[in-house]
């Protein structure tokens, strides 16, 4: 079971306290109706599926409840870093 550092609680906590939230830094378009079908498809469905460094969202759902971002290596399953939502991509 992984230990995950919650940047809000500033503590490493067991994985069961967290929920995975998919790839990070995919902002919902401000005006979806202005998007073409292809652009909307890209937003909805197309993900990087990275082998290696992966930016992803986690939520400390059984803790503080906050969403945050993480960089995890999908090969080694090791977290490189976690940071608060809204901060620059690392």
């Amino acid at each position: 079971m992984l230990l995950i550092h919650c940047p809000y609680c500033d503590e490493k906590r067991p994985e069961i306290e967290f929920a995975y939230g998919g790839e990070a830094h995919i902002a919902r378009p401000l005006d979806p109706s202005a998007l073409s079908d292809e652009e909307w498809e890209t937003y909805l469905f197309i993900r990087s599926n990275a082998r290696g460094r992966h930016h992803e969202r986690w939520r400390h759902i059984h803790g503080c409840g906050r969403f945050f971002n993480a960089v995890r290596d999908t090969v080694t399953d090791k977290f490189e870093t976690t940071y608060k939502a809204g901060e620059e991509r690392r």
Binding site: R28, R66, A85, G86
Partner: peptide, 13 residues
């Protein structure tokens, strides 16, 4: 509730 929190925290803070 989780879906609402997601939008509230990450899209419309």
């Amino acid at each position: 509730l989780a879906m609402m929190e997601d939008y509230l925290q990450t899209e419309w803070p």
